[in-house]
Design a protein around this nucleic acid. Sequence first.
DNA 1: TGAAAACTTGGAGGCATTGCAATTTTTCAG
DNA 2: CTGAAAAATTGCAATGCCTCCAAGTTTTCA
Lengths: 211, 211
Amino acid sequence: MAEGLRERKKRQTRQYISDVATGLFIERGFDAVTVAEIADAANVSVNTVYNYFPAKEDLFLDRSAGMVDRLARWVRGRAEGESAAQAVLRELRDEVRAVSPRVGLFAGYADFMRVIQEAPVLRSRLWALAQQVEANLEQVLREETGAAEDDELPSLMAGQVSWVYGTAIRVIGREMLKRREPGEVSREVLALLDDIEELLSERVLMYAVRG
Amino acid sequence: MAEGLRERKKRQTRQYISDVATGLFIERGFDAVTVAEIADAANVSVNTVYNYFPAKEDLFLDRSAGMVDRLARWVRGRAEGESAAQAVLRELRDEVRAVSPRVGLFAGYADFMRVIQEAPVLRSRLWALAQQVEANLEQVLREETGAAEDDELPSLMAGQVSWVYGTAIRVIGREMLKRREPGEVSREVLALLDDIEELLSERVLMYAVRG
DNA sequence: TGAAAACTTGGAGGCATTGCAATTTTTCAG
DNA sequence: CTGAAAAATTGCAATGCCTCCAAGTTTTCA
């Protein structure tokens, strides 16, 4: 614990800068806020901001970055006889139910989504994060199946599962931007997750046969 | 045809700038070439470059941008009893077979992929294009099925099909970077496309059941 | 308590991108 | 063929993100 004070202070500073930045972004939009303004508002120099965050986008997506191994964790810990996609949908349902009572989180999430919607840079960055999520998942599946190095199967599987995940997140986000009352949002979202699972099992998505 | 000469000249200039830029990017990498250098090499001013291309990435992805409606076209024109995913894979196979004899295209494609691999900005941009492709496809499916405005199904279907497309493109690209002999590349790629189709029909991807 | 390590800062500069006004080129009617 | 009008090109200035570097400052620890 020799490194206690310093480490604590660093974490606080980092968090504070990110919070200030996030507030400004939500208030005025991502592009309308300069890094210089953020540094000013956080009482640090521009260079200090860059010491903590490699790029402007990271100021906003700092927390999301911590979730890159979530999917891999979910799949690794799934139950016997449960498919990867099912596990992901189940965990999402649990999360929605757990967070549902707290209105604040929902409201914050809507703001978050709105800022991202309006800034292409942020969307790209979020996609890059999704890539990492997928890579982690691929690693898990590769270990689980013991597939060979040049076997493309784990990669394809990871792609599919992370598509399910991404789609769920997207429809949830869309739903949140629509409604206002948290209870209704929660109900709609859960229904959507059920829909997705049903669609997957019916293979409807994959085989939209004409005629 | 009053606007003939001017239009022709514009198209030529545009093409020339893009070609010069592409050459430089392939030679030295995307980040190692400045817009000023490109303008110089193309005998125009920096502003002229920006008159034709909104951003540096567009210099490289100019041709790819023309393919945003390809997927929608393929699906719209699929045969009776053929699924959307099947149609996409079939068209891709046809394309590989058609282009296979011409070594030049393959070689160029490998260079193209390499440049993109090394530049995150280009990957993001390519992803943005994929988003447009997906949106177009969703529109087609929406019209075809006559789904309601708030029905999420066409969106999900489009997502799935365009995932199949993207995955195929990705594995093809990976394969191309690996091998050198065009005949072998072609054979491998066709085998991969078959694999993908088989995996889809076996539902293996979606249901990686544990235990 | 005093160096070593870690953190912060200011300044200079590179590069992408935009806006504006001046200049050149192309079109087209008379 | 000629002279505006329209369109394209250009230079210049400025903004904003981001990097590098060379001082300071603060924190750690012997």
